[in-house]
Amino acid sequence: MTPEPDVLRRLRHDGDGSISAIGRLHERLIEAASSHDLLDVAYRVLDTPVGPLLLAATPAGLVRIAFTDQGHDAVLDDLARRVSPRVLHAPSRLDPAARQLHEYFSGRRRRFDLPLDLQLAHGFRRLVLDWLTDLDYGSTASYAAVAAAIGKPKAVRAVGTACATNPVPVVVPCHRVVRSDGGAGGYVGGLETKHVLLALEAGARP
């Protein structure tokens, strides 16, 4: 016997009310996940002068910043694989980072004061990022100078690789590392973005 089409349709009815219910329930889930220590990776997207940035944080701190060219979905998949699949869209968890980045891009912040989780960088790459964290706003250093500063003067190319794989660009300022001959070198967010950041920092100098 053919089922009553009306009953089937009503069973499967999922009007706008259900969609708004999911939005509300999602917020509840974020709160519950957070209080049960199950929000391993929170993320949001922030609009900036260099395009939408994906920001992701663990309870330990900011773990990832990604440019659109890197593919936000691919980066989230990577976080799910390398950090934890408990990845949720939780914008409020990124409020401090979003606020400081906004201040930075409007020329009102010269130094980030955010907890960082650098678990995605190991060994030599981690050493490079630690050193870069103290590289002042508006200044630059050559790849060779960074290599020398951390006691591996021959590891110039490895410094380039460390910059190219920086999990938290902008906040850890790998854009301040340039070529010895004055060229900009490469950048994880594209060369144009590197020029924008360097110009921003040059222009905002007192």
């Binding site: 999922d14 329930l25 408990r86």
Partner: peptide, 18 residues
Amino acid sequence: SLPPFEAVVVEHGPVVLR
């Protein structure tokens, strides 16, 4: 590998609510 849990909520949340 498992997709981010967010994708699970978005894809299956409404059906589970029903």
